[in-house]
Design a protein around this nucleic acid. Structure first.
Lengths: 227, 227
DNA sequence: TAGATTGTTAATCGATTAACAATC
DNA sequence: TAGATTGTTAATCGATTAACAATC
């Protein structure tokens, strides 16, 4: 049985805190790889570019995992964060859309040791359906027909899906996913997805990210002109 | 000469507003493609999942681009947002790291019509340096030696760089970029980069994004158990 | 014990929302 | 003019920071 938990515990984490927990976990794994067993909030915070006050406050929501006067036990805190985030196990994910971006995510090594494995790839193009992709040394995955997406999700209890289709196809795929019972979606399609409340969408819009950078470059350029 | 601007104007935009402007621009381009010439804050807001109050407040920072009783002229607002973000021109960018992810970004069609073009690709592996990559129909780019990165940036006035190297190489590449005069970096390497103040880093950590989703899945699972 | 560092409180800061006067 | 919708204000909400008592 899955681990038990006091009702309500850790449910009310502020959204901003939740978004930082993976960064803390990543930082701690780095620290552990360097052989460090105990770390203070200040040392850890410095290494990941947050303030120590923020780090302590965020961690305090998970309950007291530190020791006053000493710091945090790295292994213990990794364990606590992994359990809180649910990445003490591996989550099977599906990727829908096998273009350049989708295939690169399928082959992305960084998912494996952080709680994820690729369960299947889907596409709508007949010419690539049925192809076998070697996503890592010795691990092969079939590209399946997107028409079988809903069935696959139900039969394999998939809970997380990644959309890497063209923008025009994304909403249709999203609807299929939601109808099949998916509540967690990561999408790279540059279009606002419509989902029922309760469905969690994380959108990564690559061009938008770059445009946030150009805003600042542009602003600097304008300042020079204005002087 | 670049367009003139009242000193201070649009510089003090809240960070949260700046991060939404690209979404507004994207939504407006969609709307325009559907042939709509004037849109109310409520219609536009609904289509991109923000509130109309937030949209109006954000747009008000750019100065009054709407007409009371009528709405916003789609073409005018696209122009205003493009100028504010600086994407009324094309920014040359470099991609450092030609693995699966880097190559997929190089070929990503979504950059072209949103203000960016790939100026060059860089890698450290001798076996791929010098290779030609067709990043789009008829557009070819060389993979250059990362040793020539700083020179290339200076000679071509590159202002934005993308890091898609393995984590272990990222900080070194970042230092090179910063020393060469880069102030805007998008990175996919799952490591916290150290940069001097004034350098703008947007990190996209794919596994961290997924872990934010698993947190909620995990929380839901725990709630069921607790009942 | 003395020094170090957490966990927590209170103050500050920034972002969002609701409401409506201004005005097309 | 009457109806519609912006731009702005004030209130609320949430996130961050600073400071320090608790405690190892």
């Amino acid at each position: 049985m899955a681990q038990h938990r006091t009702p309500g515990k850790a449910v009310g984490l502020p959204a901003a805190t939740v978004a930082r927990l993976p960064i803390y976990l990543r930082g701690l794994n780095e620290v552990k790889a360097r052989g460090i067993e105990v770390i203070s909030s200040e040392e850890l915070a410095d290494s990941i570019n947050v303030t120590s006050a923020q780090l302590r406050k965020d961690l305090s929501y998970l309950g007291g995992h530190g020791t006053r006067g000493v710091g945090y036990d790295v292994t213990d805190l990794i364990q606590a964060l992994s359990v809180t985030l649910g990445v003490d196990k591996q989550w099977p994910i599906v990727i829908v859309g096998c273009g350049n971006l989708g295939m690169s995510l399928a082959k992305y090594a960084g998912f494996t040791n952080r709680g994820f494995k690729i369960a299947a790839l889907f596409d709508a193009a007949p010419e690539i359906i049925g192809k076998v992709v070697e996503i890592s040394e010795g691990q092969k995955v079939f590209i399946k027909d997107v028409a079988s997406l809903a069935t696959f999700i139900r039969e394999n209890n998939i809970q997380i899906a990644v959309i890497t289709t063209p923008a025009a196809a994304a909403q249709g795929v999203c609807d299929t996913l939601v109808n099949a019972g998916i509540f967690s979606i990561m999408t790279f399609a540059p279009i606002s997805l419509n989902v029922p409340s309760g469905v969690d969408v994380r959108q990564i819009d690559l061009a938008s990210e770059l445009q946030i950078l150009t805003f600042h470059e542009q602003t600097k350029a304008n300042e020079v002109i204005a002087i």
